[in-house]
Amino acid sequence: MITLEHVYLLTGAMFAVFAIGRALDRRSARRWRSAAFWGIYALSFLAGSHLSDLVNGMILVVLVVLAASGLATADDAAPLAERREAARRNGNRLFVPALTIPVIVLLVTVFAKHLHIGTAALVDPAHTTLVAVALAVLVALALGCALLRVPLLAPLREGRRLMEAVGWAAVLPQTLASLGALFAAAGVGRVVGQLVTQAIPMTNGSIAVVTYTLGMAMFTVIMGNAFAAFPVMTAGIGLPLIVGRFGGDPVIMSAVGMLSGFCGTLMTPMAANFNIVPAALLELPDRNGVIKVQIPTALVLLAVNTALMAVFVFKR
């Protein structure tokens, strides 16, 4: 069976190659620091499941220290003239590997339940999507190398260039997710929920609705994740007040409440994988460039959600 662990090994191997590539580049400044950063991140993928919590924690500490001390800058892209010439030569064949990724992801997610080796499933049913992405990448790579006639090292070199352009932001989403776990363990959610309910007098249903939707959005902005905000706000305001005291419908309250949280996700650097990583991937000079574009849509949609809930939640 192909499991998540296999995908981790593949990802770790890729980062290990990036680290070696950086270490071998004698002309680059800070090459050892960068090689250590990607090498240790590779170690986390390769061995993280077998290391103790303390060692995994030390890995994170070292990554943060290396990132703070500054990593090597990415290599330059191939010159424009060269890429134009390649584009002319390769033509529409270029789209084949690019579109292979969604096609394979689609096929694997749809048909995975029917694929078996003996009695065991071919793909771990708990992680179908992640395995599908890894398989799709391998197929696209093979196709790309064959169709475009490039050596196998080319994708690894170009992959490292893109990865180094993203830089330390690469580990930020994972670190933020871990921060969420620490917040949860320390009981941050409970304290925030108590503060909100104490501060606002809940004299009628509309006030409860507005507090709930805005609270979902604001708490998501702080935590970077609507999933963390939902239990806190729903246990603090949604269930006891909107449903309990004012007789609202729990389905509408939850569904629209979660979507109000998603409006918060659009507005916060804490949701790094959606907001900060794309800015790095697209080489925007402003780290918050994507968030700035999203804020107006998020605010109007939050108002719409609040109105939706206020109008429909109390009707039976």
Partner: peptide, 25 residues
């Protein structure tokens, strides 16, 4: 938590394909 959330980093597997295609125009 960092080890449990490694699945977030799997998205980077795509970069060699994208880099290859960008190099090829």
């Amino acid at each position: 938590a960092f080890a449990e959330n490694r699945y977030v980093g799997i998205v980077w597997l795509v970069l060699p394909v994208i880099g290859l295609l960008e190099r090829a125009g």
